[in-house]
Design a protein around this nucleic acid. Structure first.
Lengths: 231, 231
DNA sequence: GACGTTTTAGACAACACTGTCTAATTTTAC
DNA sequence: GTAAAATTAGACAGTGTTGTCTAAAACGTC
């Protein structure tokens, strides 16, 4: 890590006029290798081979290994953030068919945000390098998860206001919804495995059933005989 | 990684007659450094300094870096396993004061198994090196989480049989209990932070309240007016 | 086709790390 | 106190990596 980069060498490298494909290829390969090997274990040569690019080209675009790393993290963070908010936009609006809609929503979140390559990469990277390079994730840490939970909480608030759910703390409910959605997948994901569609569906069903038992109003059909027991 | 270690060099090193303190000191320092830097990023010299030991001593006890790594993983896995099962032994037996007992249980699990140093180490290690050194975690992967969930599930089954809970799938309930317990702590833990006692308690309360709403029978006091709404 | 830019392969120095060796020193057992 | 065992500091070769440099080749644009 050089503290003083020579000012005549631009950090941003070529690409003013094109060669976007090279950059994209490097970013993708670097994400792969950094994810597999970690920052310390990743070698520029390995990235170059995987990107079908010469090592020098990497140094032309990103003057240091750390510059490349920062660019990869930025890229993945941006993509993951836009993905999660586009998924939040598919949250069910009305409450007819709520259970099925929530199941489908949970599947989408898990499949496209948590269990995909970007999700895996982010979990690893944050966990490994978050303490070593706090500045990389600081803004995401302060805004990312908090804003996601707030947004999801607001969606649950809407359902709660319409009487479909009965929730006191919307943010807690949002966190619990996500946590329940991962409950059956966490161990797989810890080992880097990707769940099958069947596993995704089963996990989502288990999660939503429990969530609706806790927060659903009486119209939820899936709580067979609690009223009978309580009455 | 040498494939053929000279047979006259014992893998287990000295310690037949004592020097346990050195070994323990090395193991502890190595766990620390491996956890912070990963396998590739950790240097033997750094471990030696942190253990207050010369580098040669490390090589005397563990002939290769990988041997040391394996020993550290074994050590942590054994300790974590024994801790989790000793915590499971404190699961509430009877159902009077169930909510408070479950809260205390969740706090104990989180504090002593999930949020402590060993838990952090294991999460990192499994996630990072689990694919590269599958043999290290294979037996734990097959037996560890599965047996933990089964054991916790059996405890919930006991409460269910006594009528205090109403659960269909005990293993699912066990996973959900643990997932709910982590719901409020996951982001902190991802960044390597350790929750305060207040945060631990609040997280456990939120988790148990929701869990009991989903699985509790009518005797649970904390579901204020579902019956009224449903009636 | 010509020109400026980008890419490439390869060589290169500087550095860090692993694992070995040795000889001196300290610790431990008896 | 003595002898065996363990530890230490330091030097060392071998290796891999980063980042630089150069000259040739490929590319894109006009």
């Amino acid at each position: 890590m050089k503290n003083l980069a020579p000012p005549e060498k631009r950090v941003d490298g070529p690409s003013q006029r094109g060669q976007f494909k090279k950059r994209a290829s490097i970013l993708e390969a670097a994400a792969d290798v950094f994810c597999r090997q970690g920052f310390a274990g990743a070698s520029i040569d390995e990235i170059a081979v995987e990107a079908n690019v010469s090592r020098q080209t990497i140094y032309n675009h990103y003057c240091e290994k750390e510059t490349l790393f920062v660019a990869v993290v930025d890229d993945v963070l941006k993509r993951a953030n836009s993905m999660i908010f586009s998924m939040l936009a598919t949250f069910p609006v009305n409450a007819d068919n709520l259970e099925e809609d929530l199941v489908a929503f949970a599947i989408r979140i898990n499949k496209n945000c948590i269990c995909n390559q970007d999700g895996k990469f982010l979990r690893r990277l944050v966990q490994n390098e978050g303490e070593r390079y706090p500045h990389l994730f600081e803004t995401w840490r302060q805004q990312g998860p908090g804003r996601i939970i707030s947004a999801l909480g607001a969606l649950f608030a809407r359902l709660s206001a319409s009487g479909a759910l009965k929730i006191e703390d919307f943010d807690v409910a949002a966190r619990q919804f996500l946590a329940l959605g991962n409950a059956d997948l966490q161990i797989m994901m810890l080992f880097g495995q990707t769940p099958s569609d069947e596993q995704l569906e089963s996990a989502a069903r288990n999660a939503v059933r429990t969530f609706l038992r806790a927060y659903g109003t009486a119209t939820s059909p899936e709580r067979p005989d609690l009223a009978a027991v309580s009455g």
